[in-house]
């Protein structure tokens, strides 16, 4: 069981700029993979392409979710197939309450004609909110509307906890979080770790990986995975920056 990305090439639909240039990566169920990389390396593009954002076109490659290619699927079908994307910048949906939004997302997973059981739903919702130390009033508030950066990220994790995906991609979930919020968010993610579930944690900073300890760390440069190592690689990157990897590539090319 895995989320397998094979030779993925993708470009910006509007202007044809290629961002991902033959990316290969396999996230096995039960593992946490981290992707680090300098600005502009394609980290956020990867998460959007996996989610099916219409701004990007895949020109080559496959993404197999437990063996099924998801690239031709609509974003909502990918989600229901078990993929979850925690946004770097979660959208605000004015006038739609969090409770209704999550209910609609869960309802969409039920067979036609079956109704979500309201009592069970709220019991589960409150349990997850307590884990993330979120106020009950939050259910009536509009989705992310007027939320602080930390509240938005917490809300992303709440959605993940409620939707129970098989593979979750966390796009710079640590950005905009203070240390307390980071701990709470990490607690939510760690609570979901298990043999059935894989994580791909995209981050610019090593800090997050102190709390969500990865099994594997990849370095993304120029739209490809250029280096893979254990969790110690994150510390090395923190200390040395990314230039040494870029130098390695330059040497490999010139050799």
């Amino acid at each position: 069981m895995s989320l397998e990305i094979r030779n993925l090439h993708a470009r910006i639909a509007a202007n044809g700029t290629e961002i991902l240039r033959g990316l290969d990566l396999t996230v096995e169920a039960g593992k946490v993979h981290a992707i680090m990389g300098p600005n502009g390396s394609g980290k956020s593009t990867l998460s959007k392409v996996l989610g099916g954002h219409p701004d990007y076109e895949v020109t080559e490659g496959e993404v197999l979710l437990d063996g099924v290619n998801i690239l031709g699927m609509e974003p909502d079908v990918r989600s229901r197939a078990g993929l979850f994307l925690a946004f770097q910048y979660p959208m605000e949906i004015p006038g739609v309450s969090n409770a209704n939004f999550l209910r609609a997302a869960l309802q969409a997973r039920l067979p036609e004609g079956e109704e979500l059981e309201a009592t069970d739903y709220y019991a589960r919702l409150y349990e997850k909110m307590d884990m993330l130390e979120m106020d009950r009033k939050f259910t009536a508030r509009s989705v992310n509307d007027g939320f602080s950066g930390g509240e938005k990220k917490r809300n992303e994790i709440l959605q993940m906890l409620m939707l129970e995906p098989r593979y979750a991609i966390l796009d710079e979930t640590d950005s905009g979080l203070d240390i307390d919020a980071l701990k709470i968010v990490s607690h939510g993610v760690n609570a979901m770790r298990g043999p059935e579930r894989g994580f791909l944690v995209i981050t610019h900073y090593q800090r997050l990986l102190d709390y969500i300890v990865p099994d594997v760390v990849h370095v993304l440069v120029g739209g490809r995975i250029e280096h893979t190592g254990g969790k110690e690689l994150a510390l090395e990157l923190e200390a040395k920056g990314y230039d040494w990897i870029k130098d390695d590539i330059a040497q490999a090319v010139s050799a």
């Binding site: 609509e74 974003p75 909502d76 979660p90």
Partner: peptide
Amino acid sequence: EEIFYLQSRGIPL
């Protein structure tokens, strides 16, 4: 972008 966000949670278009 709002539509993509909702779709990414499994909500049909």
